[in-house]
């Protein structure tokens, strides 16, 4: 199952962005250029069960505002503060992880989701335990890039 993680993540991100934002995303092969010093927003949702893990979705703060505007049908200038952006990115992350979780559950690895949370910063390094599998997928969305980091281990 874990070996199919890249595919699961790619499908889930593509479906969430296409359905909710009408935006096509293209999987990339490297994460080398994701961090460019610009402030980023990371949405995270965990899952706990036979498999335990957490998924982070990283986007630049600019892209996060665009996503929020598109989701809510608002102009960028109509978005009030960071709370609205945090909630939108948290919900989008929840939609991506919900799809992954459902696939895992249907394959005999039931788990439950945690409530989404948000972290803001310019560069993120998540250090995991040695038994944890880590994947980092990057996606091109128009002029923006998106990073999806998945940490997963059997309970």
């Amino acid at each position: 199952m874990i070996d199919q993680l890249d595919e699961l993540v790619t499908q889930a991100v593509a479906r969430a962005f296409d359905t909710m934002l009408n935006v096509k995303v293209a999987a990339e092969t490297s994460d080398a250029t994701l961090w460019n010093g610009e402030p980023h927003v990371a949405g995270s949702v965990g899952f706990i069960g036979k498999l335990t893990g957490v998924v982070y979705i990283y986007s630049s703060a600019t892209f996060a505002r665009e996503i929020t505007g598109q989701l809510l049908g608002l102009k960028i200038e109509e978005i009030e503060g960071e709370e609205m952006v945090n909630d939108a990115i948290g919900e989008l992350t929840n939609m991506v992880v919900g799809q992954i979780k459902s696939q895992l559950s249907d394959r005999g690895m039931p788990c439950v989701l945690t409530i989404p949370s948000i972290v803001r910063g310019s560069q993120f390094v998540v250090e995991s335990m040695s038994s944890t599998t880590r994947r980092f997928n990057t996606f091109k969305c128009g002029n923006h890039r998106l990073g999806v980091e998945t940490l997963i281990k059997p309970s």
Binding site: A16, M20, N94, S102, S105
Partner: peptide, 24 residues
């Protein structure tokens, strides 16, 4: 956001009229 078969069956037993999965 949870569309796993187990959840759907559990909820169906409670008498919901429909079940929509995020993204939508």
């Amino acid at each position: 956001a949870e569309s796993g078969r187990e959840n759907v069956l559990r909820i169906a037993k409670q008498g919901v009229r429909d079940y929509l999965v995020k993204p939508f």
